[in-house]
Design a protein around this nucleic acid. Structure first.
Lengths: 336, 336
DNA sequence: TTGAAAGCGCTAACAA
DNA sequence: TTGTTAGCGCTTTCAA
């Protein structure tokens, strides 16, 4: 079944009575051939369904037309939407996308960087996940753009992110303006910039409205269980412990939904007794009941910005601005 | 910034005082070298962080360790879960995954087949989407496994699918057993085997329970709008037209949810007045309100089966069985 | 156990 | 405008 012997540039050269160099020029529109030659060569290419062997080309040029996309979890809607936009953009630019799902495992991420290097990808988009890029990444000399991941230490890595601080501030402010005074925050413990920025927005909003920061309302989450489960369990526990609160800022939509379910299970009315704001703007916030007020990230723009910058880097342009912040938007629904 | 000159097999050979052939043998565990040589070479490789240049290797071997995955829409949870499992499996086997999002556009799919061929991928997994593989695909001589896509005409293409017929039957039977007599089906018009099999399950269940097949309750969907919207609009219209029905078999979960919302908007109680069953077992069916009874596809198993078969094909094993059907499961929730 | 050398398909420098 | 040729990094055949 294998081994339809493929037609190579040599065959095309022979069949159209020119040299391989000329064929190569025609294929790559490099000039230095006559109109007549072009026609003849292209006809033969057409006739024999010739397609460039990328391995040969890549070997010769020491680079491929492949982009590596590193992502923690492709089944997370936020990420899959970003990946979709990346794929669309790069397809149009003649690049393919290698998907590298790390599952947040450091080892797998490091392995993937090695693989991407060995495969000589043209560039890498690194979405969220842990903060510090593996050592190897920086030494590779492959253009990298990060999304929602501010590389620790290194100042010269390009990254694009939503305005997480403002998002945290607006989320909290919204709750305050709707009358909440004891606002609980569900936040990952891991000190990612994404987390700390949202937290800072929360804290600043409280301060600005002269509300006390209550230690017991800062509920840390760790990494093991799902966002939904963990949030639900934590809120359940808070209710059982009778810790009073009247607002929840959940740092993503699944956590918000977890909080919502825990409250419903305890007969606490949302939004009458407790109000909730989520983050991301994924579909769960829209279709759950009642639909959740959330801070929307502009996934398409995030992807597009990152992709465009990466493309420019690949083309050798110097990138002066290293840090891009995109606005977020409040979507008011029925939990506030 | 570019151009850290990479260390090649030649460098390793020189640095460890052996020939490139020997280094190659050591790297690929091909025997024919002494234990001592092995140690020396491996030490040098380690020291200089050598990694194989895949373009060179691929060119030489006329194949890569990359798998192409063709998928209609990576943001569809059903597909992203399958892709996740494929990636996981192939990563462990030393393959990378190229993601090819076709958006159901024939042209893009054809383009991707060409690209995958030019890139000499080791194999292709083709998920759902249109039925007939492009001509080019079959001629390429690259192993292909389809998921949920029964290639038209061609009998020798390997495919793995859920038992859509049984799913359709069980969905309908469930509605009947809960007392429904006028069961509406929301089904794509496009004659994909997936659609027709579910439809056949529906029809056979009706016949088996001696219920009439009513033409006006077979509601065709076309391709333009989203599953959710289209289903919602259709059901809305049916209600307005006062077509009587007391059960809805929606051929995926988003359609089921669309139906649910349309009914709720018209003040029709679910499940009291109308019952609903969805398909796929994606999260929307779980977290919407009320959660929807659905037929679950085993995405992990689907991916694993396909991946394992493809791997065997890549390794040159003959595949005798071409068609694999995986069981589905009814998940009862609150819409029946 | 080891090495020399050919050649996979391609591009680009150089020559004509 | 066109051709010749070297060489990218690798594996493998053949010879030693």
């Amino acid at each position: 079944m294998r081994n339809k012997k493929k037609v190579s540039i040599k065959d095309i050269a022979r069949l159209s009575g020119v040299s391989v160099a000329t064929v190569s020029r025609v294929i790559n529109h490099n000039g230095r051939f006559s109109e007549e030659t072009r026609k003849r060569v292209e006809a033969v290419i057409e006739q024999y369904h010739y397609t460039t062997n990328m391995a040969g080309k890549s070997l010769r040029e020491s680079k491929t037309n492949t982009i590596g996309v590193i992502v923690p979890d492709i089944t997370n809607e936020l990420f899959s939407q970003i990946v979709l936009e990346l794929e669309k953009f790069f397809f149009e630019q003649g690049f393919s996308v290698l998907i590298c799902n790390t599952n947040e495992e450091t080892e797998k991420e490091i392995a993937y960087f090695r693989i991407l290097e060995a495969k000589m990808v043209a560039g890498i988009v690194c979405i969220s996940g842990r903060e510090d890029l593996p050592q190897s990444a920086e030494e590779m000399g492959i253009p990298i753009v990060c999304i929602d991941r501010k590389p620790k230490g290194k100042t010269d890595v390009v990254y694009v992110e939503s305005d997480h601080y403002l998002g945290g501030y607006i989320a909290t402010e919204t709750l305050i303006q709707k009358g909440c005074e004891k606002i609980l925050i569900l936040s990952k413990q891991k000190a990612l910039s994404v987390n700390t920025q949202r937290m800072n927005g929360y804290l600043d909003a409280l301060r600005h409205y002269r509300l006390p920061v209550r230690e017991e309302l800062i509920v840390p989450l760790d990494d093991d269980s799902s966002n939904f489960q963990e949030a639900r369990d934590r809120i359940f526990y808070m209710v059982k412990k009778r810790v009073p609160f009247d607002g929840v800022f959940a740092t993503n939509d699944w956590r918000a939904y977890g909080a919502l379910v825990a409250l419903q299970q305890n007969g606490i009315a949302v939004p009458q007794q407790v109000k909730i704001v989520g983050f991301d703007g994924t579909s769960v916030s829209e279709y759950c009941y009642p639909p959740i007020t959330t801070i929307q990230q502009n996934k398409k723009e995030l992807a597009l910005q990152a992709a465009q910058i990466l493309l420019r880097m690949i083309q050798g342009e110097p990138i002066l601005q290293k840090h891009f912040v995109l606005p977020v938007a409040l979507i008011e629904r029925h939990t506030t």
